[in-house]
Computed example of a mutant assay.
Amino acid sequence: MKRFLLFLPLLVAVIVGVFLFAGIGKDPTKLDSALIGKQVPVFSLKSLKSPDSSLDEGLFRGEVTLLNVWGTWCPACRDEHDDLMRIAREKKVAIIGLNYKDNRDDALVWLDRLGDPYRTVIYDPKGTLGFDLGVYGAPETFVIDASGVVRYRHVGVLNGEVWEQILLPVINEARENG
Rank of each mutant, 00 (worst) to 15 (best):
D102K: 01
W163R: 06
S44D: 05
T29P: 08
D145F: 02
R78L: 10
D32A: 15
S44A: 14
P28D: 07
G62S: 10
R89S: 13
A146R: 09
H154C: 03
L5C: 04
A88K: 10
E161Y: 10
F19S: 08
V109T: 14
P28F: 07
F131E: 07
I96A: 01
I36E: 04
V155N: 03
D116W: 11
V150D: 00
C74S: 05
G97E: 03
G160C: 07
R61Y: 09
F60Q: 00
D82T: 12
V16Q: 09
L35C: 08
R61M: 07
R153Y: 02
T72N: 11
V42K: 15
A13H: 11
S53V: 15
K26D: 11
R153L: 04
E90C: 10
D145S: 06
Y123S: 08
H81K: 10
V16R: 11
T128A: 14
G130H: 01
D52N: 15
I144C: 02
V109D: 09
N172F: 05
C77P: 08
Q39V: 03
V121S: 08
W163V: 05
A107G: 04
D106L: 11
V170M: 10
G134D: 04
P125I: 06
Y100M: 02
R113L: 12
I144Q: 01
K101A: 01
R104Y: 03
G17N: 04
E164I: 08
P41E: 01
L84C: 02
M1R: 13
W110R: 05
D56K: 06
V42E: 09
